[in-house]
Design a protein around this nucleic acid. Sequence first.
DNA 1: AGGGGAAATGACAGCGGTGCCATCGCCCCC
DNA 2: GGGGGCGATGGCACCGCTGTCATTTCCCCT
Lengths: 349, 349
Amino acid sequence: MAGPDRKPTIIDVARLAGASIKTVSRVINKERYVSPDMQERIEKAVAELGYQPNMMARSLASERSNLIGHLYGDAGGPYTLEIQVGLLNRCRDHGYHLMIEEIDYRSPNVEQRASAIVNQMRLDGVVLTAPVTDNPVVLRILEDAGVPYVRVTPQQESETSPSVRIDERQAAYTLTQHLLALGHRRIGFIKGKANHTATILRYTGYCQALTDAGVAVDPVLVEQGEFTYASAVPCARRLLDQHNRPTAIFASNDEMAAAVVAEAHNRSFSLPAQLSVVGFDDTPLAEMMWPPLTTVRQPVREMAEAAADILIGLLSQRGKVDWPKPVPHQVLAHTILLRQSTARPPVKG
Amino acid sequence: MAGPDRKPTIIDVARLAGASIKTVSRVINKERYVSPDMQERIEKAVAELGYQPNMMARSLASERSNLIGHLYGDAGGPYTLEIQVGLLNRCRDHGYHLMIEEIDYRSPNVEQRASAIVNQMRLDGVVLTAPVTDNPVVLRILEDAGVPYVRVTPQQESETSPSVRIDERQAAYTLTQHLLALGHRRIGFIKGKANHTATILRYTGYCQALTDAGVAVDPVLVEQGEFTYASAVPCARRLLDQHNRPTAIFASNDEMAAAVVAEAHNRSFSLPAQLSVVGFDDTPLAEMMWPPLTTVRQPVREMAEAAADILIGLLSQRGKVDWPKPVPHQVLAHTILLRQSTARPPVKG
DNA sequence: AGGGGAAATGACAGCGGTGCCATCGCCCCC
DNA sequence: GGGGGCGATGGCACCGCTGTCATTTCCCCT
């Protein structure tokens, strides 16, 4: 068996099938106007040669890369992974590939880096998650490049790009209400990282629930964390050290809630009898810790899938409309998960 | 301001700098043989136009995609994410981009899918993690395509591809020794998912440590889990239900250890006094649970970085040698982390 | 019978770079 | 003084595919 050993190209297929390159191209791209007979011959040739179209060549000629980028800031935790799984699910089904890029949003050359990613790779579309979602530099670059993008959990909805989110404020509100309903009045709060959208929204929900219930927001009960376990340890300590300490603590995510729980265990509190704790996100951790954590589940994967769907939908009608107006903004449903980390407050002694 | 509004190409740069396309190409690629004067002119033109080379065109012409793929099987947990962070760190520094693809290794069309990923995208190199690491179909496809790949934690080292791992067997051995040294004799074990390499190695280490200490491996104390919390709950239950129950349990990963801990809490055991528990991997969970878990830390991120380094090193000398012989196999150091989930067994009553 | 249009196919020029080879000036050295 | 070698530059084919337009055939309608 002699013959060329290199990968077969569209030319080889055309030759074998006795068709023109262009017609083969049509079959590959499932375009119309190919007779059943011809189609079959070409498909047979493709199979026989094991032909696989070269994406690079395809992209170059068609100006479509079939690449979707996921830009994110902090690699942190299960969240990012869930997002990726969701995106991947959709990409797979629609012939797109996922390219992931971390952007150090604090670095002075975000601009250069973001631009390089978007422009060099010729990404067809981009999904943004926190905290890049709200980075004006990145957004501008995307706008300038004319690359469609979808933002997951944006600070505020924009008229130029779609978004997907849950109502975080409402979720925090409800969760706080739950604590209030149990009878808690002194409810501690640990905030998340300063520049994240979620931080603000969750805190707002907490405040509003208190206010609506006629309970004043006591600044002594509010601590500033950074969404990490370590950052929350001192917060928990300070809260529990108080003479008139809170009977419940709302941590802005599960990880920080775990720190509170650990600190409570350290002091041999029995949970939830002596202290109620709630988190946010329903990370795997939440049900693996003891006691299982009351928290709110964000359908992260579904959000990513929704984002991908929007993006892919957009891309498929490229050239017709730039954006459907108004651009879609999806709000997905969250779920409050009542587990065993919350209970009525201890009776005053 | 008239002028073309589309993205500048190498031609525009050449024109502006008064050089040939080829010379611009040389500057972009940092090749030798360009005079300082010329170099400066071209760099200025590049800056002025905001020129960004088109990766697609570049790849097509040079047969190098600058793309590294990460193929994995189960999206599970922090492990995958850490791997990605490690890979990303290196890719960023060396001008590569990371493309992630999940492969459903159980599906009948793994072959087709893997082949599509590798061949269509023209990946320059690939990093494999469990359980794809040992999938013969995928390995063959990579070999056939002549794409260099590095395997993270392979079942066994191969002569055709480099690998990176820790000595899992040894780690499990040492961890078991730790329990033995504390005085435990009845040590339960929960195995991981059947087709993962780690499952076998960890179990082997456990068995060997017992045997070396003159303790027989009791099949009644060995349960089959799947690396998930849920899968380990019934295992934990069965182990703790036994009349002569184990005084310590070795779970093949932290998540399953968390299940054991939860089940113990459920029965109001005090830990570690009544039951010692150890895990494996040192996921974030390990130090967030209560009591903090004794486990072994795999330097996952570093492993990924090492894998990327090997791969990139290889790629940079493409065309010279196919593989350095013998191919590198790195074994990174693990760390046994003694935390508060282990203690001497309770004194017999 | 002739005109019009849809279906089916092909020819060919790029897309934006890189690889290979040719060219040119210049210095070194016998 | 002429051959040899190296630094510096440019010309051009080509990577593998798609977009555009032309062409051919065939069928329907007036």
